[in-house]
């Protein structure tokens, strides 16, 4: 696969970057498509990346949180809809999060640092496979995406497989998960403000258990372990470990020790959701 930047004319200095500020989401899409340049939301991932290699896209398409439905949380019969440009700290503070995703507010303390959470967006976090992506994957969220062909709503997993560089994420909808048992855990390099080595999410929707992971080996819905667990009565069974290990290894999780940690973390989270604590 060729480097997406290779067709462009990258620049070495910030002062040479042009920041395009479209008036509307559709204009943003057409600019991104026309110039083959990335969107900028909070900029907390994009800037460190380019500051590191001192090689910037010559243009950035700035997204605007004031565009309708791009920011904030709302619930209706479909579930909880989150605007992609909602900051991580807004999300952590929001009363609807306490209602729908009780453990999330505290968990977000472990995502980046406070200043970065004030700038960084939930959409950006999803798009780069950050901590929230495992949660979104386990909850089967549907994303609301705009591109040149119009807008569509589709499952996150499908979007991640198919997405085009000009796809613009407006938000995502979490199904009504009130009453579900949700457990999540992050393994980083230190207690706070660490890139994730592995973030694991375990959800019990009242009927079935869902498992997803993101981190060093990439975002993954743990389908086989789910099947294994859901088809057995004993959720805390230790045997699920081998299934998890195979699944992770088959999907790019190379570090055997990290897989070992994930096996055990999964067993721990499974017993939490099984016990309802």
């Amino acid at each position: 696969m060729s480097d997406p930047l290779s067709e462009l004319n990258p620049v070495t200095e910030r002062r040479a970057i042009r920041v395009l500020r479209p008036d509307s989401p559709s204009e943003a899409v057409s600019l991104a498509r026309r110039f083959k340049v990335p969107y900028m939301a909070g900029g907390t991932w994009l800037q460190p990346t380019h500051e590191r290699d001192q090689c910037w896209p010559e243009k950035l398409v700035a997204l605007n949180a004031a565009w309708p439905a791009f920011r904030g949380l709302e619930d209706d019969s479909r579930g909880l809809t989150v605007g992609a440009l909602t900051s991580l700290s807004e999300m952590a503070r929001h009363p609807l999060v306490r209602e729908y995703l009780p453990p999330l507010a505290l968990f977000l303390n472990r995502v980046a640092g406070p200043g970065v959470r004030a700038l960084g967006t939930v959409g950006g976090n999803l798009a780069v496979g950050g901590d929230l992506s495992a949660l979104a994957m386990a909850l089967d969220v549907r994303v609301d995406v705009l591109n040149r062909t119009g807008e569509r709503t589709l499952p996150l997993s499908r979007w991640l497989r198919e997405r085009a560089s000009d796809d613009l994420l407006r938000g995502f909808t979490i199904p009504d998960c009130r009453g579900w048992r949700i457990s999540l855990e992050k393994l980083g390099y230190r207690e706070r403000f660490s890139p994730t080595r592995a973030t694991l999410v375990c959800v019990h929707d009242g009927d079935r258990v869902r498992l997803a992971v993101c981190g060093e080996g990439g975002l993954l819905r743990l389908v086989a372990p789910e099947t294994f667990v859901n088809d057995r009565a004993d959720l805390a069974s230790g045997d699920v470990g081998a299934v998890i290990d195979r699944e992770l290894a088959a999907h790019g999780w190379q570090d055997a020790h990290l897989r070992m940690a994930l096996r055990r973390m999964t067993t721990g989270l499974l017993s939490e959701v099984a016990l309802g604590t």
């Binding site: 460190p48 590191r52 640092g113 230190r190 207690e191 706070r192 403000f193 890139p195």
Partner: peptide
Amino acid sequence: ADNLDQYIIPTLQD
């Protein structure tokens, strides 16, 4: 490692 996101020193919480 070339910056403080890769070179990990303790935070207050550590």
